[in-house]
């Protein structure tokens, strides 16, 4: 079984860590020699833990509606413009109120890609497909597509939006499913 990208990345980092530790015990410094370039590198002794806390108070309805199987957007009452991702201010009409509206589930695929080389925080997943669909009301949605063979997908094909649970994290999100 080939190693996941996460395992590979973590192995690489732990090798550096081990090297730095042995250098600390031999010369008293976390100095390692890059095997590729043969130059001395200081192995940073301060690690940054970074996880953001992002306000969703004003768009709470969007997230709470997911558990009812609904995908919501906002609509400027004055201009009729539908905003997705939902935002609570109407950029083309400064005084306009916005109201919550339900998005249609049907659309067509505008474009797609399969992510083979993944970001670190996505490195525990198998290759995944990201696509952009245009829904029947013209709103465009970017999401994963439930098909990882790009040959089975086509620009212009019909897709449906489904509310799904993202595993292994176990939280609600939405996905494009070829119809």
């Amino acid at each position: 079984m080939p190693k996941s990208q996460k395992e590979e990345a973590e192995k690489f980092l732990s090798q550096l860590e081990t090297f730095a530790s042995s250098m600390k015990s031999s010369i008293g410094l976390p100095m390692i020699v890059d095997p590729k370039t043969n130059v001395a590198i200081w192995y940073d002794q301060r690690e940054l833990k970074l996880r953001f806390m992002i306000s969703v108070e004003k768009t709470r309805k969007f997230f709470e509606s997911l558990s009812e199987g609904k995908l919501m957007a906002t609509k400027c009452s004055k201009t009729g413009e539908i905003l997705f991702p939902p935002q609570i201010d109407c950029p083309t009409s400064i005084d306009s109120e916005v109201e919550w509206v339900l998005l249609p589930k049907e659309g067509e695929l505008l474009t797609y890609t399969v992510i083979n080389t993944k970001p670190f925080s996505f490195s525990h997943y198998n290759d995944y497909t990201v696509g952009i669909a245009k829904l029947t009301n013209g709103v465009q949605v970017l999401a994963w597509v439930r098909e990882t063979d790009p040959k089975k997908l086509k620009v212009g094909m019909k897709v449906k939006v489904e509310i799904v649970k993202r595993e292994p994290e176990g939280y609600l999100t939405y996905e494009l499913v070829p119809a």
Partner: peptide, 15 residues
């Protein structure tokens, strides 16, 4: 939610 990468963004254009 969707873990795009820089090559991924441009791949959407390439497709």
């Amino acid at each position: 939610n969707f873990g795009l990468t820089f090559p991924g963004y441009y791949a959407l254009y390439a497709t």
